[in-house]
Amino acid sequence: MNALHLPPTSTAETVAAAVRDHGYAIVDDLVSNELLDRIAREMAPYIENSMYGTDDFSGKLTRRTGALIARSPAARELVMNPLALGTVENVLSHATTFQLHLTQIISVSPGSPPQELHKDELAWDFFPFPLNYDVQCNILWALSDYTEEMGATRVVPGSHRSDRKDYTQADTIAAAMRRGSALFYSGKIYHGAGANTSDRLRQAINVTYAVGWLRQEENQYLTTPFEIARTLPDELLKVMGYQLGCFAMGYVGDAEDPLTVLRPDQPRSVMNTAIMAKQAAHNDAAANFMSQGWD
């Protein structure tokens, strides 16, 4: 079976539908080499100083380098990519808001064996989220070419719709793609890094988003110092989590919008009217979901 590829002209609705139907989709040639070159230059010293994993799951020949918002101005463009945000908003439309869950460059060295297959939403203490409720929409941006020999991520198509857990490498396909392409995938799909049998470093930029009411894997408020955060545009700050996760989750002080911590000159609103309006629009959908049960 060949992996599902979509053109860069695809709409967010098309990509989101593929993620819902298949658990993943590859969008070819979505960003330029120039943008990736800037990210690579900005992150190079941090990657060089990153530690290799200490166990088989994290990869003893794999480096994971985070804090991209603070360390790489170019990476902020990737986080705010319009197709990425549009797809995430569509996939997670059942929630009032979504937020940045983590940013990370994953560097898989030659000789690295295949990673254990897993689904990313297990990060929340292995809580068994319902199959019909997505809490994540993930993207792996190919910072290098992403060939099967180099250890391209392997996915199990359709596994996001099943409670099965005993998948093997024989169930997977390689999400091979060119540099600048992006693998969109559900937090429910089983996947893992492939074996790097080449003599080249395989690199991907992992940018993951989650519904706004869950705790983030990468603590964006501590990872990005206040002196940097204050210089960022409001829309990026909101994606980072400087907004209410729903009508009452994540307020500061006297029930105030968290953005007022960085923008003290803003009106100290007790309620975010935009969030409240969206929450109200979700009431009927939430009631319908709950009436169907959690099984």
Rank of each mutant, 00 (worst) to 15 (best):
A3W: 04
A3D: 03
H5W: 11
L6E: 02
L6M: 11
T11F: 05
E13L: 09
A17I: 02
G23Q: 02
Y24S: 07
V27N: 07
V27C: 07
D28P: 04
D28L: 00
N33P: 00
E34S: 10
L35N: 08
I47Y: 00
Y52T: 11
Y52H: 15
D55H: 12
D55K: 14
T62R: 15
A70D: 14
R71I: 00
R76S: 01
M80K: 04
M80V: 02
N81Q: 10
G86L: 01
V88I: 10
V91G: 09
L92M: 06
S93G: 11
H94K: 09
Q99R: 12
L102R: 11
P110D: 13
P114E: 13
L122E: 07
P128T: 00
L131Y: 01
V135I: 15
D145A: 07
D145G: 06
Y146T: 03
R154L: 05
R161E: 05
K165C: 04
S181N: 01
L183H: 14
Y185W: 14
I189M: 09
Y190K: 05
Y190S: 08
A195K: 13
Q203K: 06
V207S: 09
L214T: 05
Y221H: 13
E227S: 14
L237A: 01
G241R: 07
Y242S: 05
G245T: 04
F247D: 09
M249T: 13
V252M: 09
D254L: 14
A255G: 10
V261W: 04
R263E: 06
S269L: 14
V270D: 09
A274S: 13
A274K: 15
M276F: 10
A281P: 04
Q292E: 13
D295H: 09
